[in-house]
C-alpha cells in the first residue's frame, strides 16, 4: 500500500516550518514519528498535499524538569518516555502508559506529540495526560499558548491545535511523592488499541485521606472522559477497598460509549467500571 503522492519538506527550524504551514494551510500536515499519520495516509483516510517533517528541528525532543513541572518535547518517543528515570520515578502512570502503546517497534518511532495531536479516541496517552492535568504548548509564528488537556481534546481526531500551530511540548505538573498515578488498559487483542482504558491520579494527605482525584476513561467517547462522579466519591475519603469499589462503580455514570464490531455499549460500560477500579487501586497502592 502506498500513500497518495505528496510533497515533502524537512525544515531546519520552527520558523521555516511555520512558513511552510502558512504557505500550504490546511493542505499541509506536520510529520513527527509518523506512526499515526502514515498508516492513515496509506489507508487514504487522509491525503495531505504536503508533509512538514520536524526531524531536523532541534529542541523538540527530550525530557527535563522545570521547577515543579516535567516538560516533554513533542518529538520524544514512547520508548524514551517509558524508560526515562525521571518519568518512572515521578509519573509511574505515564511510564506504564507509554510502555503499552502499540508494540516495541511502534514505541521506537512513535512520539508523544504525534499521538496527542492525532487525538485518536482509542489512543493511550490522551487518557493519562488528562488524568495528570497535563497542558500542551502550541507554538506558531505569533508566539505560543498553553492549553490544558481538559480543553485540548475537542472531539474524535480533533484538538484545539490550529493549522498554523505546532505542538512543541507537553507540560505535566509533578505530583508530590509518592506519585499515585496509574493506567489500566483493555487492549483490542489484534490491534493493541484501547477498547476501554482508565487512568487515575490521586493525592493523599498524611492522615490517609484522598485530597484530590482525577479518574479518566478512554475508549468510551470521542475524547478522554473525566469520570467526575468517581472523582467526587474518592475526594475527602480514606482509600479503603470499599470506597474505591464504590467510586469505580460510578465511573460509567453519564457515558454514552459508541459500540463497534468488537464491543457493544453495555460491555464498554461494564469494562469502564472494571478498569476504573483497577486504575484507582493501582494508583492508591503506589508507595
Amino acid at each position: 500500500m502506498h500513500p497518495a503522492s505528496f510533497g515533502y519538506h524537512a525544515p531546519r527550524s520552527l520558523v521555516e516550518a511555520f512558513g511552510l504551514l502558512r504557505e500550504h494551510g490546511e493542505d499541509a500536515k506536520v510529520l513527527a514519528g509518523g506512526h499515526s499519520l502514515l498508516p492513515a495516509m496509506k489507508l487514504r483516510l487522509t491525503q495531505p498535499e504536503v508533509l512538514v517533517d520536524l526531524r531536523h528541528v532541534s529542541g523538540l525532543s527530550g525530557i527535563r524538569v522545570d521547577g515543579d513541572t516535567l516538560v516533554i518535547g513533542a518529538l520524544t518517543t514512547h520508548t524514551e518516555v517509558s524508560t526515562a528515570e525521571a518519568v518512572r520515578r515521578s509519573l509511574p502512570g505515564l511510564a506504564d502508559t507509554a510502555s503499552v502503546i502499540g508494540d516495541l517497534q511502534v514505541r521506537n518511532r512513535g512520539t508523544m506529540g504525534g499521538s496527542v495531536a492525532h487525538a485518536d479516541p482509542a489512543a493511550d496517552l490522551p487518557v493519562t495526560l488528562t488524568a495528570l492535568d497535563a497542558s500542551f504548548v502550541l507554538t506558531s509564528s505569533e508566539g505560543e499558548r498553553t492549553v490544558a488537556a481538559d480543553e485540548f481534546f475537542v472531539d474524535f481526531f480533533t484538538t484545539a491545535l490550529e493549522p498554523h500551530e505546532i505542538l512543541t511540548a507537553i507540560r505535566i505538573p509533578l505530583p508530590p511523592s509518592p506519585a499515585r498515578t496509574s493506567y489500566a488498559k483493555l487492549p483490542h487483542p489484534a490491534s493493541g488499541y484501547v477498547v476501554v482504558s482508565a487512568a487515575a491520579a490521586l493525592s493523599v494527605d498524611d492522615a490517609g485521606a484522598c485530597t484530590a482525584a482525577r479518574v479518566v476513561l478512554g475508549g468510551v467517547a470521542g475524547t478522554p472522559h473525566r469520570a467526575t462522579a468517581a472523582e467526587a466519591a474518592l475526594t475527602g475519603q480514606e482509600l479503603t477497598p470499599e470506597v474505591m469499589t464504590a467510586a469505580a462503580a460510578q465511573a460509567a455514570d453519564g457515558i454514552d460509549p459508541h459500540a463497534d464490531s468488537y464491543a457493544d455499549e453495555d460491555y464498554k460500560r461494564h469494562m469502564a467500571v472494571v478498569y476504573a477500579r483497577r486504575a484507582i487501586e493501582a494508583a492508591a497502592a503506589r508507595a
Binding site: G34, H35, P39, Q105, N108
Partner: peptide
Amino acid sequence: TSQCGACTVHVDGLAVKSCTM
C-alpha cells in the same frame, strides 16, 4: 498496516517497522 512486524529492520540501532517509515 504496522501490525505484523515482518518488515522490521534496524534504523540507527532501533527496531522499526519499515512499512511505516
